[in-house]
Nucleic acid binder design. Sequence first.
DNA 1: CGCCTTTGACCTGCGC
DNA 2: GCGCAGGTCAAAGGCG
Length: 524
Amino acid sequence: METKEAEEIGHNKSVQMHFFDILQQDQKQEEAPSKAKGTATDDEENTEESELVSLSLGLTSNDLSPSKEGKKNRNGEGKNLDEGLALGLDIRFKPSSAEVEAANMPSPASSFEEEVKELQEPTEIWPPSKVLQTLRTGDNNIEASPQNQLKKTRVSIRARCDTQTMNDGCHWRKYGQKIAKGNPCPRAYYRCTVSPTCPVRKQVQRCAEDMSILITTYEGTHNHPLPLSATAMASTTSAAASMLQSPSLTSQPGLIVNSMAAPIISSTTANNLNFTSQISRPQQCHFPNSSISTSNSHPTITLDLTAPPPTSSRFGRFTSMPRYSSSSTSLSFSSSSFSGLQPNIPQSPWSTPAGYFNYGNQLTHNGNQSLSLLNTGKQPLFQSHYIHQPNYMSTTSHGISHQQPLPETIAAATNAITRDPKFQSALAAALTTYVSNGAAGGRVSETPALNMKLGDDMSYRKSTVYASGPKGTNFESPRQLNLSSSSVNAQQGNLVLFPTSLPSPQASKSASGSSSNRSNQLLQ
DNA sequence: CGCCTTTGACCTGCGC
DNA sequence: GCGCAGGTCAAAGGCG
């Protein structure tokens, strides 16, 4: 099946998304590995309740997966597998002083070897279905508790894809199909088969409104090394998922989003995208253009890769004004690089010449390649550091016409950020991604790690980001991240991030053709 | 032969 | 308690 998909994708059309996966490392597993062996199930479930969330990407080392992995080199992953990779994402939300023990936890990102051990000695963090079924009926079943149900985090990807499923780099076995209410398209249920004990499942369903949109929802934590191709976007979704793991981020001064992972280098071919990973540069999240949303019953982050492009130019013109109401605030992360996620677009989302950072209506221009960290504590976030810097706002030598600052917009957006903890974490994730993209597509990311501290202290840490031109062209021009505000439903503690500048497939096609020109213009 | 998909039945949670 | 909907199981069959 995967092979079929890969062929189809590779030869023809579709997005070839060698995708992500999330490894949400269980806090208690890490704390007490021995315990995890014995009571892994409980630990797994406890993870859902833990406020301290440690998200870690899988690693791709020597193939530790079952034999089939060795037999079948599906989707050409074998090449990548040979290389080996340590990808780690460590997002920790240290919510309160009560989480003292959290401080003793090893960081997945910094404990690669530990993770390898763990993987080599697989601890069943999810019981086999039969066991699970038994547990469900048990009195002590933690999973059955409403609380756990409530906290089961999912990451959903919306992407235009004309194949049955997106090729996310993992191997899946379909175990069920249902017609969901309100959607004529059946929902398919898949289980990760890379490891027999892997608890990760995904649901695939076409969007009722737009059949070309494939909605893939991931749930669970891989307990095995991921193929390189599967780790490409893991950090992105991990970061996104992390937002849902902490009920109140900002009240906790110690939130640290720490990027220690290798970068993901994207490569493109004529008709498909191929996100592959390469090693050893510190970096992390991919948040191409995504919308993130959560729901109450099943906290779900949706990375919306389908949004149409704005009517305005990707470069410097932003038409949407942030909208605020007493009950909602909105933040949009967008990047000019997103077109790559659309099918048939010969441009990598990670290799665009420039990223954009738009906060509110401001196009900020990080003129000195210094992307500092995000502090969403008491200080207005980008205000002092980016937006108000004349350099950033001025028309650049690339011919970008930047709009004038709009104080109200900034103030409103700042207020939105400082008000909503999840908002802050979303920003952290987005920035992490942004920096990641820069490092991935670019030549250099000078900082071994991007640390984003959301809290009270304003300790900025420098992270230098270089943009990359198309296909290996290295640019040292600043990347610009586009962050615009629109609306977030803060009432229910939900965070919604709407993409604002995602090119439609058609637009992307044309845009992709001219993008490099524009890019060159930008960077000349 | 092994792995996969299909598909009806079953289980579980939730709202009324 | 009942019904509905989502999710899962597992037997059957297909495919390479």
